[in-house]
Every structure is written in structure tokens, then in C-alpha cells.
């Protein structure tokens, strides 16, 4: 464990050093991360405003809260591993990684957390700016704020494991972009990213409850908005734990098979 901790610390320093080299792309990345929830926020605020101040069980100010919190939750659980993995396999740089006596997922986790810690202060500033502009209604109970800590960690772990596993499709096919597109559309609709899931018809909500996407994004947002009962929160944590177990099992199976394929066709 101490060895891994040292690796995480070192990866943090390396990621930090690399990131500050790319100030321009850092800003562009941040803008894209803010822009998407901002667009939904403006669209839904407008819809709500013209609809007499609410849509479903969300008022205009609650929409504002939803999308500002979503931006922050997404910042915590977001990964870019699917683009990264494709590049590694295509360019053959994965071979260098495979020669290392450490599972490559560790460097990726460390790199992901590092990047986010580095950009977090700016994200918080932006959230505060948006709050000043859109006056969100946000008053979660204390227990929900405390519960949000493990929920966010679980959301990150589930999303990271699933996307890392899916990214390994690059071992089998060179058309990873198509798979990514399908995945992103599913996430967009079934995680609560494009709109709160309670606004969708019941069957869609059921599908969303079964699939993992809601537990990676929508569920922490709803919790932080104070929209869930303690029982609902516990059920959600249960779903996250189940998906974490599934994700871990898939990750192990796919990794073993993937490396075999990579090693068979010419690393």
C-alpha cells in the first residue's frame, strides 16, 4: 500500500507539471465542461419560466440548482479514459505501460484524481458565479450533505471502473469512437444529464434505475438537492455498491482477455 501511495503522489506531481504546460487546452476543457450543463440550465429555465414557473416537480430555481450541482458532480465522476485508451492501443504506447510492474489502472486513477483536484478550485468559482446569476434554490438537509461524500466516491468508482472496462474495447476493435458515441448518448439520457430523471415517463425511469448511469451522476445530484428520503439514499448506495461489484468483476474479466488479445495480435 505504501508503494501505491507513493505512486499516487508522484503521479499527482507529474500530472500537475504536465497540465500547467497546457494552460490554453486546460481553459478549453473547462469551458466545454461548463458549457454543456449551462446550455441545459438555460433551456430548462426558459421552458420552466414560459410554463408558469415550473416543469414537473422542478421550479425555475430548482432547475438552476440541479444543473449547477450536476456540473460539480460530473466533474467528480467524469473520465476521459475512453479516448485515451484508444490512442494508447493504436499508437502502441500501451506496450510501455504493460512492461511496468504495476497495473496501469493505478496511474489512470491517480492521473484522473490529480487533474480534478487541480481544476476543482476553478470549477467551484464558476459554480459560485452561476449561482449568483441564476439564484438556485438549494437547501439540502445536513445528513444528505454528509451522505454525499461516500455517494460521490462510489459514483466516481463505478463510473471509472465501467468506463475503463469499456475503453478496453480498443483491444478488439479500431472503431472505438462508434462505441463511445453510443455510450455517451445512453449516459446523456439515462443519467439525468440532459434533464432530471423524474421528468421522464415511468418506463424510462425504471430502465434508468436498473442501468448504472443514474448512480454515477443523477443520484448524487438528487441527494445534494435534498430530494431523496434517507431510505431512497440508502437504496441508492446499495445500487452503487452492486454496480461497483459488477464493474469490478467485468473489469477483471475484460482486462485478462484484453491483454491476451493485445499480446496475440502484436503489441
Amino acid at each position: 500500500m505504501r508503494g501505491l501511495a507513493a505512486l499516487y503522489v508522484q503521479q499527482f506531481k507529474t500530472t500537475f507539471a504536465s497540465m500547467v504546460q497546457y494552460r490554453a487546452s486546460l481553459v478549453i476543457w473547462m469551458i466545454s465542461h461548463v458549457l454543456e450543463p449551462l446550455v441545459y440550465l438555460i433551456v430548462w429555465s426558459t421552458v420552466s419560466y414560459t410554463g408558469g414557473g415550473s416543469v414537473g416537480d422542478y421550479t425555475t430555481r430548482e432547475f438552476a440548482a440541479y444543473f449547477i450541482v450536476l456540473m460539480l458532480v460530473n466533474h467528480v465522476s467524469y473520465t476521459w479514459i475512453m479516448y485515451e485508451f484508444e490512442y494508447r492501443v493504436r499508437e502502441g504506447t500501451f506496450s510501455v505501460t504493460l512492461l511496468k510492474p504495476v497495473h496501469p489502472i493505478h496511474s489512470d486513477i491517480a492521473d484522473n484524481i490529480s487533474s480534478k483536484l487541480i481544476t476543482l478550485p476553478l470549477m467551484v468559482l464558476i459554480a459560485l458565479g452561476l449561482a449568483a446569476a441564476f439564484h438556485p434554490l438549494l437547501a439540502p438537509p445536513m445528513w444528505a450533505v454528509v451522505a454525499a461524500i461516500p455517494v460521490l466516491i462510489l459514483a466516481f468508482m463505478v463510473r471509472f471502473l465501467l468506463e475503463w472496462t469499456l475503453a478496453q474495447s480498443a483491444f478488439w476493435t479500431t472503431r472505438v469512437t462508434a462505441i463511445n458515441q453510443i455510450y455517451f448518448v445512453l449516459v446523456l439520457f439515462l443519467s439525468g444529464q440532459i434533464a432530471p430523471l423524474t421528468l421522464f415517463p415511468a418506463p424510462v425511469q425504471l430502465v434508468a434505475a436498473i442501468l448504472p448511469f443514474r448512480w454515477m451522476i443523477g443520484f448524487p445530484v438528487e441527494l445534494l438537492l435534498g430530494r431523496l428520503s434517507p431510505v431512497q439514499a440508502l437504496t441508492g448506495i446499495g445500487a452503487q455498491v452492486v454496480w461497483l461489484a459488477i464493474g469490478f468483476a467485468l473489469f477483471r474479466i475484460v482486462w485478462r482477455a484484453g491483454v491476451r488479445v493485445y499480446s496475440a495480435v502484436g503489441a
Binding site: G3, A6, L7, V9, Q10, Q11, K13, T14, A17, S18, Q21, Y22, G92, T93, S95, V96, K100, P101, V102, S107
Partner: peptide
């Protein structure tokens, strides 16, 4: 093939290898 990070000095990559 390269294992050095492109944008940072080589010593930083060396340090990472030290940890790995």
C-alpha cells in the same frame, strides 16, 4: 517508443519510474 512525458523535464518522468 517513448516512456518520457513529452512536456515535462525528464527528471519528472524518472521520479515517476522511481515510484513505479
Amino acid at each position: 517508443r517513448n516512456e518520457l512525458y513529452w512536456d515535462i523535464p525528464a527528471t519528472d518522468s524518472f521520479e515517476l519510474n522511481r515510484a513505479i
